[in-house]
Design a protein around this nucleic acid. Structure first.
Lengths: 126, 126
DNA sequence: GATTTTTTGTTTGCTAGCTAGCATAATTGT
DNA sequence: ACAATTATGCTAGCTAGCAAACAAAAAATC
């Protein structure tokens, strides 16, 4: 993804933010957190980069002024239209592999990461 | 890994370098590159951190003075002895999962990453 | 109604990855 | 023997992750 996006000076996480805004419209920054599964501080940096480049606007909510609503600018919408389709990456990686084996791989990884998340969660709380 | 190593101010890649030196003795920095599968520049930073902390020594080779031999210092060996055993992480993640399913997951992921590596390799050469 | 706690976002400082470009040393070609 | 190429490592500048500490606003408590 990074290699494909490099010509556009966009990183993969920045791409995910744009994807979200392009497909689901303006979004609260706090809601993006849950969608992208990253930390507040990280998202702050990523959004900052997009704002700096003029691709995204950050508007404080009128009701809850702590929260910020993110929306694409005209320049952002234009760039999004020019970005290449990245689904070919998934095709290259997985096309032709047995569907059942992919399902097994997903199950194994979800189990493992779930257990590790749980382990971390406990370690943090205690 | 990072959570377990944090009390010792050691990152996971730094741990891998120490592991290598602890188990296989002094190693040329260029050989570590292949073992850790990271870029020259990245390893340079990681090794720099270890040298700065006095855990590893970087000695220019007498025959080829470009190359640098890495070896643990006394302080490094001491710290290595104090680090916790990290194999519990693998146990937490995978214990009890069907061995055949794990093998399938590994196969799927190796195929996918292999294909993507190949794709990147071509893109870089052209 | 005033105080405390929680939520949201930012900043700072770290690890770790990358590319590009540089210097130096070694090797290869002519 | 000298010139050109290759190999090794470093620095600079970037993305992206994290934790800790902070400010501001909102919500909860007393």
């Amino acid at each position: 993804m990074d290699a494909a996006l490099r010509p556009y000076d966009i990183g993969s996480t920045q791409w995910y933010v744009l994807y979200q805004l392009a497909h689901h419209g303006p979004t609260m920054q706090r809601d993006l957190l849950r969608m992208l599964q990253i930390e507040r501080a990280t998202l702050s940096i990523v959004v900052g980069a997009l704002v700096r480049k003029g691709l995204v606007e950050q508007v404080p909510d009128t009701i809850d002024r702590r929260q910020k609503r993110l929306q694409m600018t005209v320049a952002g919408t234009k760039l999004w239209g020019e970005l290449p389709d990245l689904t070919f990456i998934r095709s290259v990686a997985f096309d032709g592999i047995d569907q059942a084996e992919i399902a097994t791989a997903i199950k194994v990884l979800q189990t493992a990461t779930g257990r590790l998340d749980e382990l971390l969660r406990q370690g943090t709380d205690t």
